[in-house]
Amino acid sequence: MSGGRGGVVLEAVDLVKHFPVKHGLFQPARHVHALDGVSFALKRGETLAIVGESGCGKSTLAKCLMRLTEPTGGRVVLLGDDITHLGQGALRGLRRHMQIVFQDPYASLNPRWSIGSIVGDPIRLHEKVPAAERRRRVAELLETVGLDPGFADRHPHELSGGQRQRVAIARALAVNPSVIICDEPVSALDVSIQAQVINLLKRLQAKLGIAYLFISHNLALVEHISDRIAVMYLGQVVELADTRSMRRELLHPYSKALFSAAPVADPDASARRTRIILAGDVPSPVDPPGGCRFRTRCPWKQARCADESPALRAVGDRLVRCHFAGEPGFPAPLS
C-alpha cells in the first residue's frame, strides 16, 4: 500500500449515484438523485462527520465508498489507489483497510453465524493466525465494546439492538483498518454505552491513526467527535468546515435550520428554545428542483435562487453552496 497524498486516506471525487425509478414500460426513465457530485478528502487520524436530513444520501455515500453499490459516476480513492473499478477479488483484499458499521444492526449480521464467527471473520480473511489466537482476539474485542466474552457462542437473534450494534463495531475494529465508515454507529445504544464506544473510537484513533467517516443525526455527538462537518442536502454537500468554526457560525441556510432543531436533554431548556421550522415539503429526489435545491424551503431565497444553481465555493475557511453566503449579516436572524 502506497498511502495517499498529504496524509489523505480516502477520497471521494465527484461521486454520483442515480437509482432508476420504475414506472410504466413506455415512460421515460426517471432517477432518484441520491448523490450528485460529492467530493471530500479524509485524512489519516481525522473524523469527518456527514449530517443532513433523512434520505439526503448519507448511506448511499457510505455504500458507494465501500463499493457495496456501484457509483454512477465519480471516483473513490483509497490510500492513493483508485478503487472505483476494481474487481470484487481485489476489493476483498482492500477491505481490511476500510471497514463499515451499518445503520441497521438487525440487517447487518448474518443470522446463522455465531457472534464469535462474525467478529472473527475479518481476521480469518485477512490474517493467517491460528484459531486459538483468533478466539482470544475475539474475546478481547467483545470486552472492548462492553460485551461479555460469553457472547461469542450466541447468535444475533438472541441479542438486543444495542448488543448487535456493538458486535458490528467489534467486527469493524478486528483488523485495525485505516478507515472506518460509521453509519449511525451508536444511535441504538444508551448514552452511557454510547460514551463508552465513542471514547473507545477516539482512543483507537489517537493510538492507531484510524480515520472515521461518521454519519449521525445526533448533532451534539457530531460536534463532540468530529474534526470537520459536511452538511448534505438532497445528494449534495452544502457546507463543509471545521467543527470549531461551524460551532461559531453556520453560513448555509439549511445548516442553520438543521442545527436549530436539535432536542436538548433538559425539560426546561426544551420549553425555551426556538426552532427554525422549515416550511414546505422536502422535494422529491426524483428530478430535484432546478436552481438551488434548497430554494423550495429556504426562508432566505430570492429570485436568483430559482434560475441559477449555486456552486460549492470557498467562503473564508469553508465551502458553502449558497449564492449569498459570506455577504455581511447573511443569513439574517428570522423575526
Binding site: V51, D104, G161, S187, A188, H217, A257, L258, A262, P263
Partner: peptide, 13 residues
C-alpha cells in the same frame, strides 16, 4: 420502540 433513532431532528420534531 426506538421510533426516532434513524430520523434527523427536523423529521423527528
Amino acid at each position: 420502540d426506538e421510533p426516532t433513532t434513524a430520523l434527523d431532528v427536523t423529521v423527528q420534531a
